[in-house]
Design a protein around this nucleic acid. Sequence first.
DNA 1: ATCCCGAGGG
DNA 2: CCCTCTGGAT
Length: 215
Amino acid sequence: MTKINNQESNAPLIFSTLLETFPDARCELEFHTPFELLIATILSAQCTDERVNIVTASLFAETNTPEGIIALGQIELENQIRSLGLFHNKAKNIFAACQVLIKDFAGQVPEDVDLLRKLPGVGRKTANVVVSNAFGIPALAVDTHVFRVAHRLGLAHCKTPEKVEEELMLIFPRERWTLVHHLLIFHGRRICHARKPNCKECPLVGICTEVQTCN
DNA sequence: ATCCCGAGGG
DNA sequence: CCCTCTGGAT
């Protein structure tokens, strides 16, 4: 029996529609180096990119190297990132990650997802964001937005981000992975919100498998 | 109240 | 699998 909400065949239409709607879809974290993006991405958990950018602007003006962060000290780092939430864990992880970078990677951010994941505080999603946006290596990071939107559009059906990542990578060609990630995020943030999706302004309302009619 | 580009630990 | 960490925006 055919799965009724299997929309893999609609993937090209979904891609082109979202690209037309969000031609500026991109990484919204501000960075100049892979290390800056790594730190910004770790900081981005549970808060908006906009506020991460405010904090990193002043932090990176002070230092943007692993050695510099170590010199800053964990307590001072905590104080600088406090307003971003989860500040203790983030500071602890960033501090430890800088030590690993210096000790095992000659102070350079590795261009490999598996190596990146050896860094404290770097999971699958963060590693994918760094390799794709800092090094141009195709990757499809599945965060809360990508997960939600992919399910609503019928592009994914699995229960874990890892499995959804696999599903999406099979549906879209490798050279599109990074852009697909950004398009789904923009759609999730601007229109397909977690709580009250704005279906009335959704360009995909005609093919969505989960249209919300109560808003 | 609920959500924000999560990850680690139990 | 679940829980915890966290301030700010809405």
